[in-house]
Amino acid sequence: MDKFSVFSARLVEKGEYFTSGHRACQGCAEALAVRLVMKALGRNTIVAMATGCMEIVSSPLPTTAWEVPWIHVAFENASAVISGCESGMKAMMRKGKLPPKKINFVAMGGDGATADIGMGQLSGALERGHDMIYVCYDNEAYMNTGIQRSSSTPWGASTTTSPAGKVSKGQYTQKKDMPKIAIAHNIPYVATACPSFPFDLMDKVEKAAAIEGPAYLHILSVCPTGWRIPSEEAIKYGRLAVNTCVFPLYEYEHGEYSLTYRPHPILPVREYIEGQGRFRHLGSEDIDSIQERTRMEYEKLVKLSEED
């Protein structure tokens, strides 16, 4: 690997496999997440991507932002498509139709593609045990179609289909816990990550790639457009999500939980909520209730990781 020297950022893989010229909005941390994931995966990778922002911004004909083989078929089926790539190549290598090679088979999709429309197909692929990685880029709504709610949108967020109004506080359901659903498939590796913590993220991707069998990565990907924050604050809000424990960073490896980062001190969720346009309508009591729920969820996670 060709690396910069001295400072830790400069130790990161220099090669870029998701390149410039993509059409993501200014300050899109989902695009940054894709870039970092690809750096960690490297050249010997095949990507199957779901319809969504990252697919659209990276592939307007006749160009592509991808430096690795990449396929997009539809919205809900990236995990089935990568299953086919993996199994097809496995058969051909076994039969001598292709020379053997270690390849990372990676499916990617947004939170809508993952937690909603593609849930059945993801479950099928995880359960079948393909040697693959599934990466969910969670920007907490259907951004590509104009900021509609998904089951991964947090309580209280105003989106175009969960708008705040006279009798509405925005999204009225709690965020679906996708990593736990992945864990319920008894796969060898599940982790959460955020590009505001790039080294943690890339370590997890490398781990997922090294492990045989299915791995699931859930990456909180700040979307300045949909969250209604200034573009330069995309990294800051990711950091706040983690430091307030709204989005804890943890791994689940061969049956054991571990927190990969413990914020000290834990910041009040208010710091995360305030300043995001999607939460602007929330009052003090609403933020308190988010605080309470965040605390409880985090404590559960700490307990799980201490048990192990």
Binding site: S59, T64, W66
Partner: peptide
């Protein structure tokens, strides 16, 4: 599209 990374033509 076999010209990989060709999005860089778009400035």
């Amino acid at each position: 599209v076999s010209e990989h990374g060709s999005s860089s033509e778009y400035k």
